[in-house]
Amino acid sequence: MSEEVATMTAVWGRAQQQDFRSRVRGCLLGGAVGDALGAGIEFDSLEAIRQAYGAEGVTDYVPAFGRRGAITDDTQMTLFTAEGLIRAQVRRDSGAWHPPTDVHRAYLRWAATQSDWGPDERRKDTGWLAREEWLYSRRAPGRACLAGLGDDRMGTVDQPKNPNSKGCGTVMRSAPFGLLVGWEPQLVFQLAIECAAQTHGHATGMLAAGAFAVIIHALARGEALDHAVQQSLAVLGSRPGHEETTDALRRALGAVRQGLPTANRVEALGEGWTADEALAIAVYCALVAEDVRHGLLLAVNHSGDSDSTGSVCGNLLGVQHGETALPPAWVAELEGRGTILQIADDFAMEMTQAPALHGPAGASSAWLERYPNA
C-alpha cells in the first residue's frame, strides 16, 4: 500500500472538522447502541423474542451480561480497529507504513482482553485503550476471531487464517476503515479485506468487510446510502468470489421495493451469522429506516445474530446522520460510552489535525503516550 496514495490531502476547515467528528461519533456510538440492543436476544428466534417482549419485540435495552446497555465483542473489536488505524498514522513518522500490521497488533491486544484478568500495567507500549479495565470481559467472541488471533502470525489475503470461514466477525468490526475519508474507496476496500483475512479467509468474509467499508466511506463523505451501496457493488464486481456478497446486497435493495418494512422481510435476507447476510440485513434496515430508532429496532428483531446486524446498521445510520440523531436515552445508558467517545474524538483529531500532534517538527508527548509509535 503506497503511502503517497493513502495520505490525507484535504485541508480541513473548522466546519468540516466538526461535521466529520459528528459522523465518527455517530458511527461508533450508533454501532455500539445497535450492538447493545441486540445483545440480550442474539441467539433467540423471532417467535421467542415476541413471546418474551410482546408483538413488537424488544423496544429498548434488555439485560445482557448482567446489565442493560451492555456491548459485545462487536463493539470491542471496532474500538481496537479504530485504535490500530490511529497508531498506523502515528507510526508513519518513524518510517513504518503498513496499516494491516498495526491493525493486527491492535487485534492481538483485543484478544488479550478475552483471556487476561486485566491490563498489564508494566507494558507501556500497549496504549491507553488496552488499559481500560472494563474491556477485559468475554462477550460471546466469535470462534474464528479467537482462533485467528491465537498466535502472532498475521493472516494475509494470500495466506489467510481460517480459510473456510465467512462469519460476520469481519463486517461487524470494519466501520473504522470507511472513516479514512482522505483515502480512495479502492484503498479502503483493500485495507478492510487485508485485515479481515487475519481471522476469516473465505472470499465472502473478506469481501463483505470491504464492501461495508466502502459504504461507510461514501456516507462519511456525505453521499446518500443508495448511492453508497451502488458504489460498493461497482468495487466488488471486479473481485473473484464476489457473487455471494453482490447477491446479498442486491437482495437488500430489492427488498426495499417490496413494500413496508417488516421482520419477515428482514428474515428473508438471512439470519446474519455470515458476513454477507449481516451486511444485507443492516443495509436493508438502514435504507427503510424512518429514523435511527426505527432502523435499529428493525435490525435486531429477527431470528439470528441480532447484536451484529444491529451494530452494523447502527454504524451506517450513525455515520449518515451524525451523533445527535441517536436516541439520547440509549446513548446515556450505553456501557463504555466515555471510552467510545474518546476513541471517536481521537480518531477524528488524528485524521484532521495530525501535523499538530506529531511529525518531523515535533510531537505531543501526551499523544505518543496514548498511541505509542513503537
Results as ranks from 00 to 15, higher is better:
G254T: 09
G205L: 03
T262G: 07
E243Y: 09
Q231Y: 01
H242W: 06
A263Y: 12
R250V: 05
T204F: 02
A252L: 12
P240D: 12
Q231M: 12
R239Q: 12
R250D: 08
A220N: 03
S232M: 08
A208M: 02
E244F: 07
T262R: 04
R257L: 14
G210E: 00
S238D: 06
G222Y: 11
T262H: 03
F212M: 10
I216Q: 03
V229W: 05
V214S: 00
L219P: 03
L207K: 04
P261G: 03
L260N: 06
H227D: 14
R251Y: 14
A228Q: 07
D247N: 13
T245S: 09
T262W: 09
R221M: 13
H242D: 07
T262L: 07
A255C: 11
L249Y: 07
L225Y: 10
V235G: 00
L225W: 11
S238I: 02
H242Y: 12
D226R: 15
R239C: 06
L207V: 02
D226Q: 14
A218F: 00
G254W: 13
V235S: 00
I215S: 08
R250W: 13
G259R: 04
G237N: 12
H242L: 04
E243V: 12
S238C: 05
L219S: 05
T204N: 08
A252F: 13
G259Q: 04
P261Y: 10
A208V: 01
A234G: 01
T246C: 02
T246L: 07
L249F: 09
G205D: 02
G205Y: 04
A203P: 01
L236F: 08
A213G: 05
L219Y: 01
F212H: 15
E243L: 12
D226A: 14
M206H: 02
G210T: 00
N264K: 10
H227N: 11
H217T: 04
A224C: 08
T245V: 14
G222I: 09
R265E: 10
A263R: 11
A255H: 09
T204E: 15
A252R: 06
H202F: 13
R221Y: 13
A211G: 10
A248G: 14
D247A: 15
R221E: 13
A209P: 01
D226W: 12
V229R: 05
T245E: 11
A209D: 00
V256E: 05
H217P: 07
R221S: 14
Q230L: 13
L236C: 02
P261S: 02
L260G: 09
L233R: 08
T245A: 12
F212Y: 14
